[in-house]
Design a protein around this nucleic acid. Sequence first.
DNA 1: TTTATTTGCTACAACGTTGTCGAATATTTT
DNA 2: AAAATATTCGACAACGTTGTAGCAAATAAA
Lengths: 339, 339
Amino acid sequence: MNLKQLAKELNLSFSTVSKALRDSHEISAITKNIVIEKAKELNYQVNPLASSFRKQKSKTIAVVIPEVVNGFFGRVINGIESIAQEKGYHVLIYLTHEDKQKEVSIIKLLQNGRVDGIMISLSEQTSDTTHLEELKEKDLPLVFFDRIAENIDSPKVTTDDYNCGIQATEHLIEKGCKRIAILSISQNLSISRKRMKGYLDTLEKHNIKQEKDLMISCDRDDLNNNDLIRKLLKRKNRPDGIFASVEKLAISTYEICEELKLKIPRDIKIITLSNSYMAGLLKPSLTTIKQPAYEIGREAADILFRMIEKKGHYFLKQNTVLNSNLIERDSTKENVISP
Amino acid sequence: MNLKQLAKELNLSFSTVSKALRDSHEISAITKNIVIEKAKELNYQVNPLASSFRKQKSKTIAVVIPEVVNGFFGRVINGIESIAQEKGYHVLIYLTHEDKQKEVSIIKLLQNGRVDGIMISLSEQTSDTTHLEELKEKDLPLVFFDRIAENIDSPKVTTDDYNCGIQATEHLIEKGCKRIAILSISQNLSISRKRMKGYLDTLEKHNIKQEKDLMISCDRDDLNNNDLIRKLLKRKNRPDGIFASVEKLAISTYEICEELKLKIPRDIKIITLSNSYMAGLLKPSLTTIKQPAYEIGREAADILFRMIEKKGHYFLKQNTVLNSNLIERDSTKENVISP
DNA sequence: TTTATTTGCTACAACGTTGTCGAATATTTT
DNA sequence: AAAATATTCGACAACGTTGTAGCAAATAAA
């Protein structure tokens, strides 16, 4: 059932029918009604492939993320999808698995009109961003969230990463930690650098020596990460506080502490960024900094649609920063000093 | 840059160029090379909207799921995406949020060629399935996973839900439970009914009385679920074992046990279906039945692509069942009888 | 009444690609 | 050498929709 057939049924030209269905002012209310009724009766729906092709608009956006089995990105997708559904857009998902090469080829794939806009959170391997600059040249709307590329003029939605670094470190110091390690992900990522800077600045503020040995750079290789953490905790001069910049590193730390018979929070305190609804039920319950993931998704999607539809305000240099909040639990409980 | 322009650059007809790029046998190896080189040089890529339209194939599939902030569905998407990327397909995500009406309208949206195939896991409100039967009529390939519609002849990929029900119940009985409650989700879902049947059959096998009061039907309203669980655990004759058919209900139970000062596993033992990598670190660690979510995604996607491309074998009545496995942890530890 | 203007509809040309068919060579077979 | 067949390419018509231009008829203004 297409326009032509529907038009024949109605004894109208197919352009009249097309316009009637799109509520054009050129068509009288009477004919519009007749057409709409008939369309409903015959269950006519526009062919989205033809329509997209003609208009060179796909009504589709792409979400490019490192992974999806992750409370944070899951919630972001939720936020994005909620706005997309409101606006009648479709959402394509692409996973980079933290692989720069995959990210590049995905972006290549998206350059030719398949999508009207792109939302991306960079892979941790991404330092060079020429593949994204090409998008800008093609005028394809682009919004970054969380893992942004600072050098590209596209709207960005992030959390207050620098402040997270400060909060986490301050919290550990407050709870009595003297030697604080940071488990960070790739320094390619600005969020990582900012969290690190928050950590470093806070140490400095408290006159705590910065030690390279306490700054562990992890990546997507979980086994290797575990080795690094194990080595860290096995050292005679091991840290008494750990700031894990992502949840999975905190979980690994928990496991290794168990393995090494280290008691949390007695021997070592842990704080992490996390969105898990299970954090409070861990053994011990895990102090977290919770990011507003759903809101990030909604906000970023909202901006993207404004860009696509070229209405409403947005600025290319816009950087929307949403606040995270610290939820104190047992993993950073102060040690009671026995008399 | 389109075919016509590229052809002009090459002094060839655009149909020749089109064929050369698609490696047609009609074109000589020499011209193919020339064309391919030029295309690379000028960075030509086919317009996917035009190509899709012409072929009436979008190279896109839809994944319709209740939610995404969930270890299970996240992993399934991972599996789906991995196959899709191999095959050069794109993946659209739609969330129903357990809302039947949303599911229906999403399915309506997908009926007109926007996607080449659909994978779905039903919302818990879905009992009537006429919206899915319409898809069958339109010959749109459809594969169910996990939450299937038994009455529709489309390939299905599930786990051994009946067996899960048996395993979980047997495990609790083995650990000394006498009064076992089941927290199940909507009985609309066959997985739910099967798990229930496994539970009931196992009780019968052990001559344990089935009590309606111990069968709690939960839904997407978390607050209401919590009330139901709270009521269950506050009863003087409260259960000593709980089989939660989904993870979030186990987590709620943990929280309510804490609230009511019930000790797990001493006062009450808990087992649940879950894919969380944090289960082992909960307080106490949570005994789980782990579903092969990633494999479900891969298997279901594989079948869908066979259907779409009409090659390889598949049967409409095919029901692929993958096995889950029980991971015993502390939440179901046997009580030691003090002398 | 005549001339503008508006209203309501139709005709038609895109959009960029793909597949069919036919034509011109080139190659093989008789 | 002629005929049959293969190879290689070009012309062209779709695919279903949308937007522009045009053309009547109806209404308003002169």
